[in-house]
């Protein structure tokens, strides 16, 4: 059954199975530590989880940063890259092995997604993994769900509830052009109406100028 966030206040956020996260963790090697970029809000569960694998966890709540600025947009026809680079404010020279985009793409216009991804190009380690969730539901919460990692196979969906918006319902076949420089590694369609995608960084000359 597709996930439909409850309209009434539910004290117990739902926990759903995650195959994509498990697939990501399966790629990790025991004797290595990884640098992780989390584009969602800071959550203690994620910190605890990644402490077992990561030497550095960088948290940039991209949607909140954008929202706090009033959702600025560039002049018509201009790229979002400078704007998004400024919002991300990633450290110069900082590179990541794992990038958790969560459900951000559902909250961007299709032309904005590649620009956000281009901003990550200069910060990808060779073979970096990008974890993306997309909803297949008709409606999604008006603001992105926060995800808490329960374990490598389960995520807690911390929905803001309340207002809803139309879901772009991005199809997996569209993702290749929306995520330049990355190659799809694994794709999962889950019973609760979510898609989980794992991409691997293959590099491109189309790098972020900012």
């Amino acid at each position: 059954m597709p996930r439909q966030p409850s309209q009434n206040a539910n004290p117990e956020p739902p926990i759903f199975r995650s195959l994509g996260l498990g697939a990501l963790v399966q790629q990790l090697e025991q004797d290595r530590f990884y640098s992780v970029l989390d584009l969602g809000p800071a959550r203690s569960a994620s910190l605890n989880f990644w402490s077992g694998y990561a030497s550095r966890l960088t948290v940039v709540d991209f949607y909140r940063s954008w929202s706090d600025e009033g959702f600025p947009r560039p002049a018509e026809g201009d790229s979002h890259v400078p704007l998004f680079s400024g919002l991300l404010a990633l450290p110069p020279g900082g590179r990541f092995d794992i990038i958790l985009a969560w459900e951000i793409f559902d909250y961007l216009d299709p032309e904005q997604i590649p620009d956000l991804v281009r901003c990550l190009h200069d910060h990808c380690e060779r073979g970096a993994l990008l974890f993306v969730l997309l909803s297949s539901a008709a409606l999604i919460p008006a603001t992105p769900t926060a995800f808490r990692i329960i374990d490598r196979d389960h995520l807690l969906y911390e929905s803001s509830g309340g207002a809803m918006k139309n879901c772009p319902r991005c199809q997996p076949r569209d993702l290749a052009r929306l995520v330049p420089g990355f190659q799809m590694f694994n794709s999962f369609l889950l019973r609760h109406g979510m898609q989980e995608h794992l991409f691997v960084w293959r590099g491109t000359e189309d790098a972020c100028p900012g």
Partner: peptide
């Protein structure tokens, strides 16, 4: 908590991969 930045997990940096040129993951 509204946090934006990096958390350095001290002491682990030394355990980072020895061959920085090798890919982080084997790939698909």
């Amino acid at each position: 908590a509204n946090f934006k930045g990096s958390i350095d997990m001290s002491g682990k940096e030394a355990g980072r991969r020895e061959d920085a040129a090798s890919p982080a993951f084997p790939g698909p």
